[in-house]
Design a protein around this nucleic acid. Structure first.
Length: 680
DNA sequence: GCCGCCCGACTTTTT
DNA sequence: GTCGGGCGGC
């Protein structure tokens, strides 16, 4: 792609006078538009710190900052606010949270912590039930509701509402917030405090929102409040790639934009720079079956390319074999085809297994994207709990995890007495630990252990607060691990030595990662901070729950990608294979729910996302028989295959392709003959 | 109360 | 194929 903008992109970049919606079709260069627009805004007199580019993931934020840096230079890029919704929320809460009774050192609970709190608040040990509550409560919160405003529709919801109320109380007591609060609380603040609102509207004078179709109700409200009367923003999104409805994203946000901002300039980007004609026509044909919010049709001038292939497979094993065969054959054709040029995309995670097996057998290197995140690992969570406790002593969930990791003679009994005691006196567990009268409920030995723990935490906290810079941080952290004998804890807790060793490696990586962040020379940390001063261990510790992308940070290796369709959004590969394109799988259908038109439309968008990941070749796999639970059932080709209208495309294109192939073959024969002659 | 065995299920996921 | 939950036995 040359470094020029096409006319639609140009228009999008230069429209600075009011709200702007860029309908960025797949592969239409939306990141280019955003970064160029940032450059344009700087030209127009905005200071870097007044421009905020908002994304959904840390990875996207990091990429955006990188791209912006290449265009506008490191200096300007450093002060840009490139941030996820959630990090922006942290930032706002950090400076304004006190107005909500939140101390500056609040904790951020991850979803496991939340689950724990919910089980506690709802007095259950039933994980499934607690997860349902978690889900419901999160959706409510994302819809802008809290326990007093929820309108329960059945008994389950009434119970969830009660649990929610207690959950809210717990979080307040812990000085903790969950991920939803990182949006919800800043929103609340901006809404009710005119001063805060004015301050932030004045700070962030131009907003650019990436993946706008993925915003939920409350994120949209927050954007409106930040943008204010001025309404200086650019939303970039694609209604056809909205695939996160199930987690609260609402296409309504796209629908409402032109209504609520009549002066909105809508600019479609329709030229696709990614895929060849056959692939793009299939994509257009499929998505054409959805009702349109905005008119938009992708085209490309990359030529027709190879026709889309439908690959019929007997079953999952056969499919995996054919995937392997296809990779080998495309690579065998010479050229510079690398493993990293391939992706296998599927609807659900568990479908990866068969491909992993086949690829391993064929000695083809691969990576599974969207697997367990580095930060989800138990050993990392252990350490995070400690760090959280240092940051916020009142974080009871963190206290409970840290005090028992590793085991230090403080058992269930002791902790439950301590819990009772703290409940009675309305203090946090940590505070309770130092109470004079603790001896009345616990024996001296238990009190002694607790005090020892408390003193250690206190001391470590002091040191963490005053340890600055990468090297000192590393010394501190390694010392801490030695103090708590964490390595031994790992080897004792794990049956397999190998597993323990790999866990310990993770721990060391984690230490390095934190230490690096204390160094102050990090430019890409997901947009969380723009300062380049060195930071204390404690400061770094506070932000860890919002940053999760160490695992994704792995450098680009030459490996085949296995990914869910969801996780593939925004990525592209020369050769894409869509796996298991069968009724029931894609569109997905579970036994108990019925397929609403809305659901089907979202599944169709998922298919569209899958198709548009491909640059040069696309294979669509269909299973003749497929596994379902324990048994095997007949496989019906997905309706989306017919919707691709491949036969029409063939009837249209085949003669020309055939002719081309014939001519090429003839030319080759002539050349071979020529080559043979002189040697005679 | 805990351990072990058996059976069943098995969307999508970020922060 | 694996994980988790539930049930039954010790």
């Amino acid at each position: 792609m040359a470094d020029t903008l096409n006319s639609a992109q140009m228009e999008a970049v230069h429209h600075l006078g009011g709200p702007c919606l860029v309908l960025a079709g797949a592969g239409s260069g939306k990141t280019r538009v955003i970064t160029h627009k940032i450059a344009r805004l700087l030209e127009a007199g905005y200071a870097p710190g007044q421009i905020a580019a908002i994304t959904f993931t840390n990875k996207a934020a990091q990429e955006m900052r990188e791209r912006a840096k290449a265009l506008i230079g490191a200096r300007a890029a450093k002060n840009l606010v490139v941030s996820t919704f959630h990090s922006l929320g942290v930032r706002i809460l950090r400076s304004e949270g006190e107005k909500l009774g939140l101390k500056q050192q609040f904790s951020i609970l991850d979803s496991d912590d939340v689950l724990g709190v919910l089980k506690d608040a709802g007095s259950t040990s039933d994980n499934k039930l607690a997860r349902r509550w978690q889900w419901t409560i999160s959706l409510w919160k994302n819809g802008g509701l809290h326990s007093d405003t929820v309108q329960p529709e059945n008994d389950d919801e009434r119970i969830a509402q009660q649990v929610m109320k207690r959950y809210e109380e717990r979080l307040a007591a812990y000085q903790a917030v969950d991920f939803d609060d990182l949006i919800g609380l800043p929103h609340k603040l901006l809404q009710r405090d005119a001063e805060v609102r004015a301050k932030w509207q004045d700070t962030l004078r131009y907003l650019l929102v990436d993946e706008y179709q993925d915003t939920n109700a409350i994120q949209y409200e927050m954007l409106k409040l930040l943008a204010g009367e001025r309404a200086m923003f650019t939303a970039v999104g694609d209604d056809d790639q909205s695939i996160y409805g199930w987690r609260g994203a609402t296409i309504d946000n796209l629908r409402r934009l032109p209504q609520e901002y009549p002066q909105l300039k809508v600019i479609p980007l329709e030229q696709n720079y990614r895929s060849t004609g056959h692939i793009l026509r299939a994509a257009n044909a499929v998505i054409g079956n959805n009702p349109k919010l905005f008119e938009k049709k992708l085209w490309s001038d990359l030529g027709d390319g190879d026709p889309v292939q439908v690959v019929e497979c007997d079953n999952e094993e056969h499919e995996a074999d054919r995937v392997v065969a296809r990779i080998q054959s495309l690579r065998g054709q010479g050229g510079e085809v690398m493993f990293k040029d391939f992706a296998v995309l599927y609807r659900a995670n568990h479908l990866a297994r068969m491909f992993e097996k086949a690829l391993r057998r064929a000695n083809i290197p691969y990576k599974v994207s969207g697997g367990q995140s580095f930060f989800d690992r138990a050993e990392i969570k252990d350490l995070c709990a400690w760090l959280r406790l240092l940051v916020n002593n009142d974080d009871d969930p963190a206290f409970l995890r840290a005090v028992t990791t590793p085991k230090r003679g403080i058992g269930h009994q002791t902790l439950s007495s301590l819990g009772e005691f703290s409940g009675k006196w309305k203090t946090s567990l940590y505070e309770a630990l130092f109470a004079e009268s603790l001896g009345t409920v616990l024996n001296a030995r238990a009190v002694g252990s607790l005090h020892e723990f408390g003193r250690y935490v206190n001391d470590l906290e002091y040191r963490a607060r005053h340890t600055v810079g990468a090297e000192d941080a590393k010394v501190l952290l390694m010392g801490w691990l030695k103090d708590i004998d964490y390595e031994k804890h790992l080897y004792e807790g794990e049956d397999s030595e190998k597993l323990a060793a790999s866990r310990w490696t993770n721990v060391l990586d984690f230490v390095d990662w934190i230490a690096k962040r204390c160094g102050g020379e990090i430019e890409n940390d997901g947009g969380l901070s723009v300062e380049t001063e060195k930071k204390s261990v404690l400061e770094v510790a506070q932000t860890i729950s919002v940053i999760i992308s160490l695992a994704e940070r792995g450098d680009e290796q030459d490996v085949v990608t296995l990914s869910t369709l969801h996780a593939s959004k925004g990525l592209e590969w020369p050769h894409v294979m869509l796996a298991g394109v069968n009724e029931g799988l894609l569109p997905f259908k579970s036994d108990d729910d019925e397929m609403t038109p809305e659901r089907l439309e979202e599944e169709r968008r998922l298919m569209y996302v899958g198709i548009t990941r491909a640059r040069r070749t696309l294979a669509v796999n269909v299973l003749r028989r497929r596994k379902k639970g324990r048994d095997t059932i007949q496989g019906i080709p997905s309706r989306f295959i017919a919707e691709m209208k491949l036969h029409e495309a063939k009837a249209h294109e085949d003669p020309r392709e055939k002719l081309k192939a014939l001519r090429a073959a003839a030319a080759k024969r002539a050349e071979d003959a020529k080559a043979a002659e002189p040697s005679k």
